[in-house]
């Protein structure tokens, strides 16, 4: 197995690199979703470079842990992470959203390492349950992670899945909610109030944890606590900020689906490198 875990101290650097890729690929594509990509960077870094058992040389390895990006519009963060992990060349990132590219606007099976074609919201948790059930049938010890958007929780299917996972005692399943508080039309609490969110999942019999989604130590500790649950799925509510790392994007719903221009990105990347 390829060594995919890197020292804890190097994770922050990976996060900076991935943020840079996201901005550069979106500027090149001239469209796409920066806000929800930037909010999930530390979550994906914790998974792909610390927690998950995976091998970029063997994307179909039956014993791998699986990551389902249910909020498929955050494709840039997934592609950038897969590139940094070695699934695809970093140079390919600039083909995002272009004709004949493997890097579609939303992730699909053209890209090695993509487990599920997320995009139409609400389906990913169900698919993750299916993968976790298969793991139980096969008596394999792989884990399944699903990243959901908080706006995505409006979808009824999420709650169908939320009822099902505890029924099937899926201790091998961890859902992570990117709780950035913003969806396309505005603030989640105005569009469709979700609070009290943790209580909702508790009431559905999940093991619930809440973390600062940018604190790598907190995220990793929560992922490890989830692993200790034998027969109960865990949901980690990761409190984040949409557009994290780019001051003018933070907390602005306009940057759910608006790409920054190349000049702006050049300046941003410069200042990120200096930090």
């Amino acid at each position: 197995m390829e060594q995919t875990q890197i020292p804890f101290g190097m994770l922050l650097q990976k996060a900076v690199k991935i943020r840079t890729h996201i901005l550069e690929m979106l500027a090149e594509a001239k469209s796409g979703h920066p806000g929800g990509s930037l909010s999930a960077v530390e979550i994906l870094v914790s998974l792909y470079f610390y927690k998950m058992r995976h091998d970029p040389k063997r994307p179909a390895w039956p014993d791998r842990d699986r990551f389902v990006l249910s909020k498929g519009h955050a494709a840039p963060v997934l592609f950038a992470t897969l590139a940094e992990a070695g699934y695809i060349p970093v140079s390919e990132l600039k083909t995002l959203r272009k004709l004949n590219s493997r890097l579609q606007g939303h992730p699909d099976h053209r890209v090695p390492g993509v487990e599920f074609p997320g995009g139409s919201l609400g389906i990913g948790l169900s698919a993750a349950i299916g993968m976790a059930l298969a793991g139980k049938i096969d008596k394999k010890d792989y884990r399944v992670y699903a990243l959901l958007g908080d706006g995505e929780l409006d979808e009824g299917e999420t709650w169908e899945a939320a009822m099902a996972a505890p029924k099937f005692k899926l201790g091998n399943l961890t859902a992570i909610i990117d709780r950035n508080g913003i969806q396309q039309d505005g603030l989640t609490e105005q569009i469709m109030p979700m609070e009290p969110l943790a209580y909702k999942w508790k009431a559905f019999n999940w093991h619930v944890l809440e973390v600062d989604g940018f604190d790598l130590r907190q995220v990793i500790e929560a992922l490890e606590k989830a692993e200790n649950m034998r027969n109960r799925p865990t949901v980690i509510i990761a409190h984040t900020v949409k557009g994290k790392g780019v001051s003018f994007m933070e907390w602005d719903p306009a940057y759910h689906g608006k790409a920054p221009d190349k000049d702006t990105v050049k300046k941003l990347v410069e200042s990120m490198r200096q930090q």
Binding site: V68, G122, I123, A127, G130, G156, E157, A161
Partner: peptide, 12 residues
Amino acid sequence: ANMIGIAAGLAL
């Protein structure tokens, strides 16, 4: 809807 999504995951 959940049934079809779970089936997709099982197939994957």
